[in-house]
Structure formats: structure tokens, C-alpha cells
């Protein structure tokens, strides 16, 4: 499995072993950006060209330019998504400009959810989401291999049961 990990292997025992997300997630996101850019550019070009004159239609080049910039950002963002299962808690780290790192102790998990939309399924991806009693807990791991998602779900539920604690 591809790991977007930047951490070296052979770290001390208490250092978490980070795992990245599937490269297919990057492909899906890029594809979505391409599709939307295309739609926007065509719509803007047609509307402005017909209503405001051909000079304005040049503005339709703006979405592709933004998309080209987003192309690189998406890769950086994809690289930043990673998670680690530690002995007692799950770590999720993500974001480049707005970094966020979440720690959820296994005992606090109320529900583990695996979802997979039509596009995600087409690309062989699944999303694991953890819910605790706190609504603010935002622990989602997108872009997992379905088999890995199921393994993670089973392991998390098992550990959650063993260490269960209420509110």
C-alpha cells in the first residue's frame, strides 16, 4: 500500500507509525476539480461572450488558471492526510496551511462509520468516520482502501469495546 508517510521507519517504540491515504483519493479530487472547472469555464465563456461581448469572455480563462494552481495544492493536501493507530488512541493529522491534528482515545468512541459514495466506489475508496459523545470531534479518514477501512473499523470497534468508557 502506498503510504504518504514522511516519517522514517525504525522510529522509537512510542513514536506513532503513520499511514497515508490512497493515491486514488488524489485522482478523484483532481477529476472533480477538472469537471467543475470545465463546466464553469464553458458556462462563463458562453454567458459572458453572448451577453457582454467577446473581450469579457476571456474571463473564462480564470477557472482553468485557478484549477492549475489547485492542482498542486491538492497534492500537498493529499500528502498531509495521515493517521496512526497507537496503543490507546487514534491520531489523525491533516492540512497544510490550516493544520489540524486530532487524538481520539479508543474508549471514547461511540460509533465507527464506513461510507463509500458512488464515485468513491468507482475508484475503490472508502471513508471511515469516528463519532464520540462530543459533536465537535471531527475524526474522518477519507480515501482508504475498502479492505483497510473494514480492518480499521473492526479493530476500532474491538478496542473501543475493550476500553469503553461513558460520558
Amino acid at each position: 500500500m502506498e503510504t504518504g508517510s514522511r516519517e522514517e521507519t525504525g522510529t522509537p517504540a512510542d513514536e506513532p507509525v503513520w499511514r497515508g491515504v490512497q493515491p486514488a483519493l488524489l485522482r478523484v479530487r483532481r477529476l472533480l476539480v477538472l469537471v467543475w472547472t470545465g463546466v464553469l469555464a464553458v458556462a462563463a465563456g458562453l454567458l459572458l461572450g453572448l451577453l457582454a461581448g467577446p473581450a469579457w469572455a476571456a474571463l473564462a480563462l480564470l477557472p482553468p488558471a485557478l484549477a492549475a494552481w489547485g492542482w498542486r495544492l491538492l497534492e500537498r493536501n493529499w500528502r498531509s492526510w495521515r493517521y496512526a493507530e497507537r496503543a490507546d488512541d487514534l491520531l489523525i493529522s491533516r492540512g497544510v496551511l490550516w493544520r489540524e491534528e486530532t487524538v481520539v482515545p479508543y474508549g471514547r468512541m461511540q460509533l465507527v462509520e464506513v461510507t463509500s459514495g458512488p464515485v468513491e466506489r468507482r475508484f475503490g475508496l472508502a471513508t471511515v468516520q469516528l463519532h464520540t459523545a462530543a459533536a465537535a470531534t471531527d475524526a474522518t479518514i477519507p480515501g482508504l482502501d475498502p479492505a483497510e477501512a473494514e480492518r480499521l473499523r473492526d479493530r476500532l470497534t474491538e478496542l473501543g469495546e475493550a476500553r469503553s468508557a461513558g460520558l
Binding site: V103, R108, A133
Partner: peptide, 13 residues
């Protein structure tokens, strides 16, 4: 405590 999060915006970084 149910979960702990660390966040960092670009300016804070």
C-alpha cells in the same frame, strides 16, 4: 475529555 485537537492556521504557523 472526549477528544483533543490541535489546530494551526498559516499566520499562527
Amino acid at each position: 475529555v472526549q477528544s483533543v485537537r490541535l489546530t494551526q492556521g498559516p499566520w499562527e504557523r
